[in-house]
Amino acid sequence: MQYSTLGYSGLKVSRACLGTMTWGKQNNQADANAQIEYALNQGINFIDTAEMYAVPPSADTYGTTETMIGNWLAANPSRRDEFILASKIAGNGLKHIRDAQDITGETVLAAIDDSLARLQTDYIDLYQLHWPNRTSPHFGKHAPGRISFSDVDTAAHSAQMLEILQALDESVKSGKIRHFGLSNDTPWGINEYIRLSEQHNLTRVTAIQNEFNLLQTRDWPFLIESCVHQQVAYLPWSPLATGALTGKYLNGARPQGARWNLIQRNGLFRDTEQSNAAVAAYGDLAQKHDLTPAQLALAWCNQVDGVTSTIIGATNLEQLKENIDAFELTLSESALSDIADVHKQFPVPF
C-alpha cells in the first residue's frame, strides 16, 4: 500500500480509504469487524464514516455505523493509533437529524460529542461537514440551470461559515478533533473557508471529499487544481458510482442484496441510458486489459493527478479484497488512452 499526505494536516494516509456506510444496513457487526481487520492488515490506515450512516439514511439506522466502529475500538483499545479516523456532521434536509436544520456552531459542538460517544474514542482525526448549508451542485444537481447560485446570500453564508469554523477551531484546541474537512462542496466553499481561517487565525480546511469516478469527473480540472495548490487533500467518494461501474446493474439487473434495490433518497439518478452505455464500454476495456471493471475504475481514480486517497466500500470481503488489490495496479498508457477515448464519448452520462 502506498501513502499520501492528507493536505495541510501533514498526516500520512493510505491511498485507499475504508468506507463504512453499509455497516448497520447491508452489513452487521461481524462484517464490520472483519473488514476493519482485513483493511488494517493490508496497510490501510484511513477509515471514513459519518453520523448519518448507515445508508440510505433513516431514523432507524442513524449513528449505527459509528456505533459499530466504536464497538470494535472498545474491544481493541490499544489499536486506536493504527488508523486515521474521519467522520462527518450531516447537513440540512433530514428530518430525523436535528429536524433538518442548517449546520451551526452549536450543532457542530454537540454532534462532535455525540460522535465521540458512539465511536468510543477521545478524538476524531478528520471531522468533515457532510454537505454545505447552501445547495451545492452534487447528488445529481450539476446540470446547468439545475440550481441558482445567484439566489445565495453570500454575506449570510459567509457568516454561517465563520461561526462553524470558530466551533471547529474550539474543538481542535480542546483535542476533540485534530483537523477538519469538507464534503460535497465547491471551489468557492473551499476557498471561502481558507480565507476565513486566514483572516481570523482559525483552523484550516485540510480535505474535501466529493463524488469522482469515470461517470462523474466534474471536479477535474478546476476544483482539483485548487486543492493541489491550496494543500487540500482530494478524497473521491463512490469511485465505482455506487457500484454501477462494476457492471452489475447493466440491462436492468438488480442482484440480491445490492444497493440499488434499496430506496434511494435522491432516486437512481445515475441509472441513465448514457451511463449504461458508458459502463458497458468500460467493461469491454477492462476485459481487453485483463482487469475486472472494478479494478479498472479504481486504478484509474488512483492515478488521477491530485487524488490523495480514494474511499472504497464493500458489502463482503471478496469485494473488499478485489477493491484493495486495485491499488497495487498501474494502468498502461494504452489502457489510459482507451479510457480517455470512452470518456470523450460519455463525458457527462448522468
Rank of each mutant, 00 (worst) to 15 (best):
I164C: 15
Q319R: 04
I89G: 02
V279A: 08
N71W: 03
E170N: 15
Q26M: 15
L202K: 07
I194Q: 09
I177F: 05
D125W: 00
V232M: 12
I84H: 01
L215D: 01
Q29H: 11
Q303H: 02
E170D: 15
A50Q: 05
T61P: 08
E211A: 10
T20P: 05
K173H: 15
W220I: 09
V348G: 07
A286D: 10
R265I: 10
T104F: 07
A86R: 01
E66T: 00
V307C: 02
P57F: 04
R80G: 04
L126R: 03
F346P: 00
A32K: 03
T315P: 03
N302F: 05
F327T: 00
Y53E: 07
H179V: 03
E333N: 13
S309P: 07
D48F: 01
R254C: 10
Y234N: 02
G306N: 00
P137N: 11
M21A: 07
Q128P: 05
P56K: 03
G252C: 11
K141C: 08
S332R: 08
D102T: 08
I190P: 00
Q120H: 15
N201I: 05
L298Q: 02
L240I: 08
L245S: 10
H179N: 13
I177G: 04
G247R: 12
V232S: 09
T104R: 11
R265D: 13
L296F: 03
N92R: 14
K25G: 04
L94N: 06
H200D: 06
L331E: 05
Q166D: 15
A297D: 02
L165N: 13
I324D: 00
R218C: 07
L214W: 04
W188Q: 13
A32H: 01
L18C: 00
I36D: 08
N133S: 03
L182Y: 02
N191Q: 14
Q42V: 05
I312F: 01
W131L: 02
A253S: 14
Y8V: 03
I190F: 06
S171P: 12
A155T: 14
L240Q: 13
D325V: 02
G43H: 01
V279H: 12
D48R: 05
L94Q: 14
S136E: 06
S334I: 09
M1A: 07
S334W: 01
D113K: 13
W23P: 04
C227M: 01
